[in-house]
Simulated scan of single mutants.
Amino acid sequence: MVKVAASGTYDAGEGSRLPAGEVHAWEPGQNQTACGVPLRRAGLGRFPHVDFSDTDPVTGGSADAVRWVCPKCVAATTPRRQRTGRRWERTDPRP
């Protein structure tokens, strides 16, 4: 249930607004992003109707005007297994 906080707003027509500019992960009920940036002081707008996974420029979705996705927020919201790809394994143990 991770939503989006962004530095700008993009009007997609039909009265819908989408995140633009700098994008961070945000959980409703919190007043800071997943990486610790305070929403009010940074001037970030909340988008409770947009999932954070939809703001990836590669996948499309709500990412038409997204310029930068916070790498710390991506790391905080991605499960550890998906980040590493495979588990660490010692290939040549010492005696």
Rank of each mutant, 00 (worst) to 15 (best):
54 D>G: 00
72 K>I: 01
30 Q>K: 15
76 A>P: 01
45 G>S: 10
86 R>K: 14
63 A>R: 09
22 E>Q: 14
12 A>E: 14
46 R>Y: 00
81 R>T: 11
1 M>K: 07
86 R>S: 13
74 V>S: 00
25 A>R: 09
28 P>C: 08
79 P>S: 11
35 C>N: 03
95 P>W: 12
82 Q>C: 02
93 P>S: 04
75 A>N: 12
44 L>D: 06
87 R>H: 12
90 R>D: 13
68 W>Q: 04
5 A>M: 05
36 G>V: 13
94 R>E: 14
84 T>E: 09
15 G>W: 12
9 T>W: 11
81 R>P: 00
35 C>V: 06
68 W>D: 02
81 R>K: 12
94 R>C: 00
44 L>S: 07
70 C>S: 03
34 A>I: 02
74 V>H: 00
22 E>G: 00
46 R>I: 01
17 R>N: 10
95 P>L: 13
79 P>L: 07
79 P>T: 07
24 H>C: 04
48 P>C: 00
11 D>K: 12
66 V>E: 09
34 A>G: 08
45 G>F: 09
1 M>F: 09
67 R>D: 15
19 P>A: 05
30 Q>E: 14
7 S>Y: 04
9 T>L: 09
10 Y>M: 01
8 G>I: 02
57 P>R: 06
22 E>H: 11
90 R>S: 04
12 A>Y: 12
82 Q>W: 12
9 T>Q: 14
62 S>V: 10
3 K>A: 07
37 V>M: 13
63 A>F: 09
27 E>K: 15
71 P>E: 13
34 A>L: 14
71 P>D: 11
86 R>I: 08
35 C>L: 06
17 R>G: 01
77 T>L: 03
83 R>I: 02
17 R>W: 05
73 C>M: 02
81 R>H: 12
71 P>G: 07
33 T>V: 13
3 K>H: 14
51 D>W: 13
9 T>G: 00
92 D>W: 15
67 R>E: 15
14 E>N: 08
35 C>R: 04
58 V>H: 07
26 W>T: 05
36 G>M: 14
47 F>V: 07
33 T>D: 04
32 Q>Y: 13
87 R>C: 01
1 M>A: 15
75 A>Y: 05
41 R>Q: 15
86 R>P: 00
28 P>D: 15
67 R>G: 04
37 V>D: 10
70 C>W: 05
60 G>I: 01
15 G>P: 03
18 L>N: 11
9 T>R: 15
90 R>W: 05
14 E>A: 11
63 A>L: 06
10 Y>A: 10
8 G>T: 11
69 V>R: 15
29 G>P: 02
53 S>E: 12
72 K>N: 15
9 T>S: 11
20 A>L: 03
66 V>M: 07
4 V>S: 02
60 G>S: 01
53 S>F: 07
11 D>V: 06
39 L>Y: 12
66 V>K: 06
90 R>M: 09
95 P>M: 04
